[in-house]
Amino acid sequence: MFEFITDEEERGQVGIGTLIVFIAMVLVAAIAAGVLINTAGFLQSSAQETGEQSSSQVSDRLQEVDTTGNVSGSVVDKVNITVTQAAGAGEIDLRNVTVNWVGPDGTYTIVHDSVGDGATSADSNFSVTELKDADDSSPVLNDPDDRLKMTFDLGDGNKPDELGEGEEVTIKVNTMSGATTTIRFTVPQSLDGKQGVEL
């Protein structure tokens, strides 16, 4: 009539319960570990990508080599800026460069002349001439030895206006990666009898 449970049977039931709890804990820990590993991998790739972008913003910039002006009468009607890669910079395509020109007659946005009128709201265009380009990659700077000339035609229907004696200009050259190079120059106080000047 009465059925007695022995100590051995009770211990067996407790052991099975403990085993089930242990297996459940192991499964939960495995799932949590998988989530943590995936999250760590995602964060690492995001951090690496952010680091590369930040590095490009600092290093992928232009370096000014020389700035000259073409003189017509008593004004400068053309500005030529020779550029190269800054130290540690990667490839820089001048077709993707945006120039912010701040001069005595206002502020202008200037882009490469290959950019069509419908594709931009820029005020004007600049052209590029290769001075030194061993692999004919112009208008892309891909070697520290490359030298390309950016030419800005002023006035005569173009913006900005021609520059007079003693006038100052600041331009900011922004590459596609977001790096900025600031170039400042001043027209000499006297242009009489000159055809070209160092700015």
Rank of each mutant, 00 (worst) to 15 (best):
S138T: 06
T186R: 01
T170R: 15
N100A: 13
Q57D: 02
Q195R: 07
L19K: 12
F185Q: 02
S127E: 10
R95T: 08
D60R: 14
V187T: 11
P104T: 01
G157L: 10
D146W: 07
T50L: 03
V14F: 08
T151M: 09
I183C: 07
G90V: 12
V115Y: 04
T181A: 13
D93H: 14
S46T: 08
Q63N: 07
L27E: 05
D143Q: 15
T6G: 12
A86M: 07
R61H: 04
T181L: 14
N158A: 08
N80C: 06
V173D: 04
A33P: 01
K159N: 07
D77K: 10
T109S: 14
E162Q: 13
Y108K: 11
T67K: 10
E91I: 10
D135H: 13
N96T: 10
K78V: 05
K194H: 05
T182W: 07
V169S: 00
L36I: 09
E167T: 02
T98M: 15
L62N: 02
E9P: 01
A179C: 12
R147D: 01
P104L: 06
Q44G: 13
E10I: 15
E198V: 11
V65E: 09
G12E: 07
D66R: 13
E52I: 15
I37Y: 09
E49Y: 10
D77L: 04
S59Y: 03
R95C: 02
G41D: 10
N158H: 12
K159V: 05
N142Q: 12
L163E: 06
V76R: 04
E165P: 06
G103T: 00
Q57S: 00
L148I: 02
A30H: 01
A30D: 04
E130Q: 08
G196F: 06
V99C: 09
G155C: 05
F185N: 02
S45N: 15
L43T: 03
P144R: 15
N96W: 02
V79R: 14
S55M: 05
N38V: 07
E8F: 10
A86F: 12
E64A: 15
